[in-house]
């Protein structure tokens, strides 16, 4: 049936867990494009060959299938971009290995451009990093436990803190947020 492959593309994306990204199914996409080309050719030949309107229903059918395919493919790609956008907000400007490995070359380029746009925008706000401060601050400082030997951490005020494994610290939220995201520190709920 026409359009089945395109739908399976979308379904595949739907099945993927939100924090993961599977590699682009280029093979399936190529099949969809091939199907589209075939349908288009069939339509073209039908229009050229037949003057009367006998083939109109089948032309419509193929046309709808073509539009449907296009819509599915574009949705698939756009949704992947949405996911990558979300990863940027969750993980920062450098994505984890397991995600990068599954990104296609074009998507990586898109990501770099997105990063640049975002950085330019943040510059216009006096360098306010809008990817930080994702949760309302409950207190000025938070209690964190160090999960790995990280070494020296330089704070904004110029102080140096040595982060050794299994030490506990009470630090301003702004200093630790990115380390918590990276998994070096663990936030202990107070």
């Amino acid at each position: 049936m026409f359009g089945e492959k395109a739908v399976s593309l979308v379904k595949e994306l739907h099945r993927c867990p939100p924090e993961q990204l599977h590699p682009v199914n280029e093979d399936l996409m190529r099949q969809v494009f091939a199907e589209m080309t075939a349908l288009f050719e069939a339509n073209k030949s039908d229009i050229e060959v037949n003057d009367d309107n006998k083939m109109i229903p089948s032309i419509h059918l193929r046309h709808s299938a073509l539009e449907h395919n296009r819509r599915c493919v574009l949705a698939y790609l756009k949704q992947r971009l949405n996911k990558i956008t979300q990863f940027r907000w969750d993980h920062g400007a450098v994505l984890p290995e397991e995600i990068q490995v599954n990104m296609q070359e074009h998507e990586k380029q898109w990501f770099n451009k997105y990063n640049k746009s975002l950085a330019n925008y943040m510059l216009s706000l006096n360098g306010l990093d809008i990817t930080q401060n994702t949760v309302p601050p409950k207190s000025l400082k938070i209690q964190v436990r160090c999960l790995q030997d990280y070494g020296e951490l330089e704070t904004d005020s110029g102080d140096i803190i040595m982060l050794t494994v299994n030490s506990e610290h009470y630090l301003p939220l702004s200093e630790c947020e990115h380390l918590i995201k990276q998994g070096v520190l663990q936030h202990m709920g107070s």
Binding site: S139, Q143, T164, S167, E168, Y170, L171, S190
Partner: peptide, 13 residues
């Protein structure tokens, strides 16, 4: 007490 007064600390057992 240190939490209440927002004192930054590092703890090593």
């Amino acid at each position: 007490l240190l939490h209440m007064d927002n004192v930054q600390y590092t703890l090593i057992p």
